[in-house]
Each structure stands twice: as structure tokens, then as C-alpha cells.
Design a protein around this nucleic acid. Structure first.
Lengths: 249, 249
DNA sequence: CCTATCTTCCACTGATCTATGGATAACAGT
DNA sequence: ACTGTTATCCATAGATCAGTGGAAGATAGG
């Protein structure tokens, strides 16, 4: 009594969307998607990172591929999976945002772990751009190196959390540190900040992570050798920050 | 070998997000969510609109409520369900966008039905604001009246598709018509445009629908009696259009 | 209190999904 | 061709889910 469409294709439409929904019913598949929004990876790497058996991980990836959310690239005997486009990352971001907004449990989990550095003290993207240009801040990418290599904030230094303690000496103690990671659900940056503060350094987290930075239309560098810092270009979008470039395609 | 978090709450996080994913595995639940993003409805109304048995619809709504994506309001013997916040609509929008972008089938279904008016000729929100101010366009809300009542573009006239033929005379044939509906997945506006054009009127669809209009930060009117047209205010956000107001909370 | 209406709860059946180990397939190097 | 590595396919068993009708709650009105 509601939809009286000419063709009968109406129901099929939601059925198609459910193909996508099917991907995010399973916690591990969300985790896999989240990882793939950061960088491409081989099946084995994904299995190890998520703690899945190889065959199980492969099966999950097949489901994701049938929903067209991931694509593959073969290199010798290895198959690399990647997120199939920016829309996928946007969807995962929306899912995470929704979770934080509506599920008190999510917020609680995040807070219980990163007790030290509250979100209240996070640096906004606009503020970072501002301060990076004046040069009195060092931007730290604390994700694994592969993810840094796949894309990072221009001028950011790669210093994976696992090596942070060992390489503390490389940081100029006179500068404030701004650390970032995978996004609001990722705890790498908060942990890094906690560690740095324990050592007496000034440090804060960036709001969100690299995917959101990219989605905001800000520049992303892929030069893996770039560790010099201090070259965030002035290529911020027209309104200065927080742009949402066309969703049309 | 990837996530070595202090507490063990890491896995729980994705498990929580999967609660949300669980909602969108089922086509009918997506359809229900989509409807609820337009306006609140009673269980029976939802069951009828989606073609579900009452008990089945209720069961689906329970799943959605447990995931906190919908909330309820009781009025006498009737229970009204509504989307639990703007984030929910944003998530549904992202799902639809992803579907259109990645699933060729979705695009195909949409195109096969609304063969007449292609998306190429859609009016942008910016253009509508522009032309509405100069007054040479009539904005048509072709959704059911309840949805118009729950929120519509200021100045839009309510003319549900089902009544379009009967009330064609109310339209000034000298003005171009811009019709809108629920969003890119909704076919009401394209059908309306096809009908209008068959009658020799100039008519185009608005890009997207009301949820996207709202998400762009543009004003939404809820005055159910407003049928006069011509009062879109000049309250567009700072950059003129397409703003994305804070995702923070 | 009793009835009518709308909604939720419950139990049950058929269907679908997940994890797993073993087999197969694709590829690189010798 | 043969071997080792990496990924996919397949069959199976256990778990979870959807739809259904009947019963039970909640509310309004007589």
C-alpha cells in the first residue's frame, strides 16, 4: 500500500544492499575492513593481524569480495586485498561513528583503555594545519610501517608504537608532538601519547585518523622514505578544513 | 601480532559494531530503517509499508532496538518507532551510496525503473536555493503526507505521487517543477517527473532527497499546513551549500 | 470489569552461516 | 618436471536466524 512501482525490482534493491550488510554482521569482517581501509595486505598478513586461521580469513575475504567491498591484486604466489574505493572507507567510518554515538558500550571500551588522554584534548585538523605551517609541532604516525607507506599525512614521521620507547631519542623535546593512528576506534595514538607524557614530553592526539584526514579532502603522501617532517603543504581545500568533497560519482 | 592492547577489550569493540551490522543483513530491516529515516511510524504502518506480517515486523524492530538504532514512543495503544538520531540516517545514506557506487546491480535497478529522467539532469541543492530565491521554480515533495509533515524543504508543496495526476491543475504550467523524494534510492520523484513531462511540463529531480538535504545542514520545515511555496530562507550554511556539520558529539 | 485494539513474547521448524581440516589450484624457483 | 609457498575450494558439523501462529501485555473506552 506504499510502494507501487512499475517494475518489480523494488525488493531486489534492498536485497542488494543486504549483500553489503552481510559483510558487517561479523566482527572479524569489520576488523578486516578496518585494516584494509589503512593499507592493502596479503591474506596471510590479514589472518595473522586478526588472529584467524588462514582458511577462515580467506572465506571471510571471499564474502567481502562477493559484496564488491574489496578487490585483489596478485603478486607472485601472494594475493593482496584492498578496500574497493573511497566509499568503502566512508562506510566503515560511518559505522564507527554510529557505534560511538549510539552504543554506550563502544564509548566505554574506548575510554576504559585509553584512560590517559581524553578526547577533549585532541587537536583538530585545522589546528594541526595551522601549527604545522609555523613549524612548532612534530606530527607522528604511530601505525605500522606498511600503513604509513600506503599513505600518511605529509610531513609526518613514521614511528610505530611498538618502536616508540626505543626511538624516543629521535624526538626534539622542545616541540609538542601530535600523534595520529587509524581513527577514533584505534588506540595506537592514545597509547603513544600516554607513553610520551610519561616521559615528560608534551603530546596530544589528532582528532580521528588518516582515513578521516583523507575524507576531509586533505593531501596524503605516499613517499615511504619521507621522514624529515615539516612539509605539510598549504593545499588545504577552499574553506580551510573539514571539506566534504563530492559524494557523487 | 598486530594489536597488543593493554586490556582485552579489543575484540569486544568489533563485536559491538557487529550489533549494528546485524541490523542491515536483512533486506527488510534496511527498508524499515530507510522508512524511519523519513518519519516515525507505528508498527502496523511499518508492517503494511514493507509487506511484512505484524509479528515479523515487530521482531525486526526489536532487533533494531537492541542495536539502539531506533527508539519508541507510546501513544495510547500504539507504539511509534523512529530513527535514533541523525547518525543513523547518515549511516543508511552511506550504505546506499556504497551500494550505488560498488554494486552495479543497484545502479541498474534504479536506471531500469526510472528510465525517463536521468541523474544527469538533476538539480543540485545549490541551484535550487538559487532559483527558489528568485521565485521561478516550484518545489514538489512527492512523498506520502506523513513524511512531508515530519519534515520538508521550506516552501515545498506536498503532492504525493499517488495524487499527482488528480491534482495536476494546481501547478502553474509556466514554472519549472523540481521534485524530490526520499533519496537516491527512492523512485517517487523520478516517476513524478516522468508523469509531469508526459503532460508537457518542465520538471526535474532534485539531487538526493530530504535526508541528504538535512545532512547538508540546510533548513527543514515541519509545518504540516505549509503549502504556499516560495519561502526558502537564505539561511544556507557559510559556504553556500554542501556543508557537513560536526560529526563530533 | 470487560472488550477491542495494538503490540510483544514464546515455541517450533526450516534455512543459513561459521569454523575447520583436507584437497586442489596458482605460481616461483631450481 | 618437481618442490615449496600461498591461497582457494569443498564437505561437514555445530550454531544462529527468519517466519509463523497462538498466547500474553498494555491501553482506551464503555
Amino acid at each position: 500500500m506504499e510502494d507501487r512501482s512499475p517494475a518489480g525490482g523494488r525488493a531486489d534493491l534492498y536485497e542488494q544492499l543486504a549483500r553489503i550488510g552481510k559483510v558487517v554482521v561479523h566482527p572479524k569482517r569489520i576488523e578486516l575492513l578496518d585494516l584494509l581501509c589503512q593499507a592493502e595486505r596479503s591474506v596471510e598478513a590479514l589472518a595473522v593481524a586478526t588472529g584467524l586461521k588462514l582458511t577462515t580469513a580467506s572465506a571471510h575475504l571471499q564474502v567481502m569480495r562477493q559484496a564488491r567491498l574489496v578487490e585483489t591484486r596478485r603478486e607472485g604466489t601472494r594475493v593482496y586485498y584492498r578496500a574497493a574505493g573511497e566509499e568503502v572507507c566512508r562506510f566503515v567510518t560511518a559505522l564507527g561513528d554510529l557505534g560511538r554515538a549510539r552504543l554506550a558500550e563502544v564509548d566505554q571500551i574506548l575510554r576504559s583503555i585509553s584512560a590517559g588522554s581524553d578526547s577533549a584534548e585532541r587537536v583538530t585538523r585545522a589546528e594541526l594545519l595551522e601549527r604545522a605551517r609555523s613549524g612548532d609541532v612534530v606530527v607522528l604516525d604511530v601505525r605500522p610501517v606498511e600503513e604509513y607507506a600506503a599513505g600518511h599525512i605529509p610531513g609526518a614521521i613514521s614511528l610505530p608504537l611498538e618502536h616508540l620507547e626505543a626511538r624516543l631519542g629521535e624526538l626534539d623535546p622542545r616541540l609538542e608532538v601530535v600523534a595520529y593512528c587509524r581513527g577514533p576506534l584505534c588506540l595506537l595514538a592514545p597509547e603513544a601519547v600516554a607513553t610520551l607524557r610519561a616521559r615528560g614530553l608534551r603530546a596530544r592526539c589528532l582528532e580521528d585518523g588518516l582515513p578521516e584526514w583523507r575524507q576531509a579532502g586533505l593531501p596524503v603522501a605516499t613517499d615511504p622514505a619521507d621522514r624529515s617532517g615539516r612539509d605539510i603543504p598549504a593545499t588545504a581545500p577552499a574553506d580551510g578544513h573539514e571539506a566534504t568533497p563530492g559524494r557523487r560519482r
